[in-house]
Nucleic acid binder design. Structure first.
Lengths: 153, 153
DNA sequence: ATTGAAAACGAAGCCCT
DNA sequence: AGGGCTTCGTTTTCAAT
């Protein structure tokens, strides 16, 4: 994905995935058909991997978020923590990281009580120690990955 | 948002925001118009805060992600780090957290060299110390906030 | 570009509370 | 009455020629 028009298109669609082809065609300066073809290509080549509606965590009953770093109890054991934890729906993201811990999770729950239960579940499901950092306030998240090529005109 | 149909609708649309009203109407068991009305309401009441296409970080030139914890150098200074850092596009999320650090950022860049520059920019823009945890591999992220009410019937 | 199909939108009427 | 659902007709958007 090096074409500047593709980059622009990806930036536009990542901000507003429900825009019509006509709207996108205005913004990138191509015909709707051309935009459509490029979009399909971006999807099929895996540049666009999916679409998502962003929900207000409080409104859907998940006001509490936290980062949980996890470290295997026994470094000798085979380590498939990500796979073991994958069924737990409260886990929104799972990365392996460089640093003190082996993995970093991002989780959302409804209450401190639920967080306690979740941490406990993670510990005994994956045989790990945990270090939890509670989110007090989210200033912003889900910001677009690509900058909009500055809007001249 | 306590209505079970709204919950179902929010779950469906968060997974597949480009579904048509007709498709959604099948899944929630209402007419397309009713679905449309409820969707508009979910949007206007702020339950649905936006839509996003998910891009492959590698494909768009941001293969390197990291968590950056930041701590103000001088606890006495007024602390508006989130506002100061907001213009930096590489920062995808900014949370205040309980724990050693004051804030947790999630960032994406193209290279270690860029990460170095970013950390430096963050430090001197917000007058903070930083602790960077590099992401080695992402197993999953962007997982839906709401479980799909199990498909009975 | 054009055209047929499909989706979205808005209006009017119905049912249930 | 009021709110929400359905159905229907119109307009806009989509997708393939």
């Amino acid at each position: 994905m090096d074409d500047p028009v593709d980059a622009r298109l990806a930036a536009e669609v990542s901000r507003d995935p429900r825009a019509t082809l006509a709207q996108l065609s205005e913004r990138v300066g191509l015909s709707a058909s051309a935009v459509q073809a490029r979009l399909r290509k971006l999807e099929s080549t895996g540049v666009i991997t999916g679409y998502q509606a962003i929900l207000d965590p409080e409104a859907v009953g998940k006001p509490l978020a936290a980062f949980i770093e996890i470290t295997p109890l026994d470094p000798r054991q085979p380590d498939d923590a990500p796979a073991l934890l994958e069924p737990i729906a409260a886990i929104e993201a799972c990365h392996s990281v460089a640093g003190d811990a082996a993995y970093m999770l991002f989780v959302r729950v409804g209450s401190p009580r639920e967080l306690e239960a979740l941490v406990s579940e993670i510990r005994h499901t994956a045989s790990v120690n945990t270090r939890t950092t509670v989110v007090l306030q989210t200033f912003y998240e889900h910001r677009p990955m690509l900058p909009l090529p500055d809007a001249g005109e």
